[in-house]
Design a protein around this nucleic acid. Sequence first.
DNA 1: CATGCTTCTGTGAGCGTTCACAGTAGAGAA
DNA 2: TTCTCTACTGTGAACGCTCACAGAAGCATG
Lengths: 343, 343
Amino acid sequence: MTMSNTGGRRRPPTIHDVAREAGVSRGTVSRVLNGGHYVSPTAREAVDAAIRKTGYVVNRHARSLITGRSDSVGFLLTEPQEKFFEDPNFNVLLRGCTQALAAHDIPLLLMLAGTEDERRRITRYITAGHVDGVLLVSSHSGDPVAEELRKAGVPLVACGKPIGLGSKVSYVAADDRDGARDMVRHLLSLGRRRIGMVTGPQDTPGGVERLAGYREVLTEAGVGVDERLVVSGDYSRASGEAGAERLLAQAPDMDAVFVASDLMAQGVLSALQRAGRRVPEDVAVGGFDDSPAATAATPALTTIRQPWDRISNEMVRVLLAQIGGEDSAAVILPTELVRRGST
Amino acid sequence: MTMSNTGGRRRPPTIHDVAREAGVSRGTVSRVLNGGHYVSPTAREAVDAAIRKTGYVVNRHARSLITGRSDSVGFLLTEPQEKFFEDPNFNVLLRGCTQALAAHDIPLLLMLAGTEDERRRITRYITAGHVDGVLLVSSHSGDPVAEELRKAGVPLVACGKPIGLGSKVSYVAADDRDGARDMVRHLLSLGRRRIGMVTGPQDTPGGVERLAGYREVLTEAGVGVDERLVVSGDYSRASGEAGAERLLAQAPDMDAVFVASDLMAQGVLSALQRAGRRVPEDVAVGGFDDSPAATAATPALTTIRQPWDRISNEMVRVLLAQIGGEDSAAVILPTELVRRGST
DNA sequence: CATGCTTCTGTGAGCGTTCACAGTAGAGAA
DNA sequence: TTCTCTACTGTGAACGCTCACAGAAGCATG
């Protein structure tokens, strides 16, 4: 037994201790630790045993000092944080990324760039090389922090297609346009022809794409787009409610509505109910996201599921590849129509 | 093609470069960087200028290697993660801690101990000294990870009083018992006497304390506790709904109900509505948490606000103090009754 | 026998800091 | 003068690791 200190500070074993214990040199231990080429089976076994016996864990600081890598990545949120922290999708994303990184033994550093001061601090922290790469949640256009990171050559993967940034930024996104197309086709297949839409904000890629999908399908189907059937929202419940009211006023004959988020769709349901319209009999309602709000609503929402678990996995995969020297990449993942009571 | 120097990898300036630029030695630069005792004004000025000019940022790995500190802390969640990531309180807590730490220039590492594998990895990571301390979210009893960290002498601050752990673990909590007392007193002051309760899980400190407060006030007031008026829930919306149904069956004359979380209270509202009871006329409903669910409910919930922003700040303060060598501490923060339409 | 190749191992250097210590200069006291 | 004290500065030695390189051993080939 090594000397033990009651409940406190014990000097952790170093690679040196392991080498001595295994009867080999530091170099051999290091080789076993990384990759492990050119190591004899006997040496490897001895080292493994010594590691187990001593409880050795590599000192990442020492390693980072020489490799230049930090073996950690940042999860950067530059959006207004209240909004995102209330968003269940964001939570799934954060959780998914943390777990995907954990599988590679890479810790995730949570970075919230709210105030100007925080933005500066975080930018410096990242460009100084204290993380190897950044997972970026900042879908809206013209983000100065992201732009600066891009310029500094920091490996970067955005969630959702970044609007403001140069084309060289990697991103992973759900196929918003195709999802919207699916939903509108679904509504058409139910015989609806006066299909309204409550859009998302038009400075976000998702908002733009979902509207585009809506327009495309209606045009292709020969139904055409009636601009009185299109109103804009900001993904909030309240804006869905307001949007539905405007739609009912502008186009009382509306028989379906595609809402760009489930949360807004909840608001739409309230407004329709207040106006005495039955869902789905009078008006079919389609949401987007498949968030908890979708199942909590009455009736439960037909919606488009975004593959958040796959998105987080892909973001991590692409980021690690980029850290490894590969080129930037864009990954677009398919969505899925989930049919429930509202259509 | 490999990533070339077009916008990327330049060797960052070291303390050496700064020293040369300022015409002083490494030691002096280091002294300016930390604390800064025994540095002449001229030297300090020269160093500051050189730092600005070179854009120097300290290499944390090198620093950590010698100091033994990592200047980072972990935010550890050992609970089932789905549950927590859906909990708005958890999000506020995570955000608050991140920001409070950022003010000290300390990054937060998010650690999710879901699978057995992850638990082992995280325990090793932490006990190896890769973080200086841990903010712990694990209110339920008998957490093996937390216990191991405590034994290893890792600075630890829990959110909510940890049940299973030894008394030496620091924690910060809202005054659950006092909050519950406030709510029940409030209901009594409205003239209600048949006050039911839907409790939280009894293996969490919050669940226990809220029930205790309920019992205390009713006993003190001479009303007494009718066990048919007490049912247990698990903080989920569904369990609130089920609990209300049981209460209505066991005690149809119930004229108020204290629900241990807002989410459950939402379920209670649904059940009461279905049973034809008006809120608050027939049955007054009091929640706990003041989460978004409270204002989203109809009618809006009277509830007990937990001071989550203060909780996160205190957790960070206590943890940093403990890392600095101070003793463990327990901090209990007052709650606040928020009156809305449901009472 | 020398030469080359492959597979494996040990060694010294050095990554960028901090820290302990030694040293210097100037002021004041003996 | 000489000594002491204070205020400041410079210098090696670490910290624990990886990396490049030099060697050693085993085996086939010239």
